[in-house]
Amino acid sequence: MTSLDVTMTVNGRTVTGRVEARRTLADFLRKDCAATGVHLGCEHGVCGACTVVLDGCTARSCCTLAVQADGAEVMTVEGLADGTDLHPLQEAFWARHGLQCGFCTPGILLTMRELLADNPDPSEEEIRESLSGNICRCTGYQFIVEAVKDAAAVLRASSADRG
């Protein structure tokens, strides 16, 4: 069984490790990089709780081997806030009660971040479609949808300020 050296950037820090080829990126991030905000809800690519940003696009870290991410840049939910300033999505989820147990939340936040980057003013239907790859068993999604709408408005306003 091969073990390989891998190097990647996780939330801005370079990490190196020697991993078995079979080790999933999710386990590498959780156990070897202490990024325990990466959650394993199904380990077969359906629930979305393990979603991370891999080289700029969201990816299921349970469906990716750590060795596949050698040389990559990875962001987890731990990298979402700016210092101690919560990201507008985090603020909106807090204000709108967009989470209950919070287990699915890291994956949802990163998925919604990608949605809003691609589509700054999504309709409710577009938000729901984009959310449909992430299972939340607690909320019934309505307050998540409302939080995403709020965050989108905040992000649009701040990009207008900058622009």
Binding site: L86, W94, G102
Partner: peptide, 10 residues
């Protein structure tokens, strides 16, 4: 409960 849950610190 939320700040910890939202930031991966739970």
């Amino acid at each position: 409960e939320d700040p910890r849950l939202l930031t991966g610190r739970a």
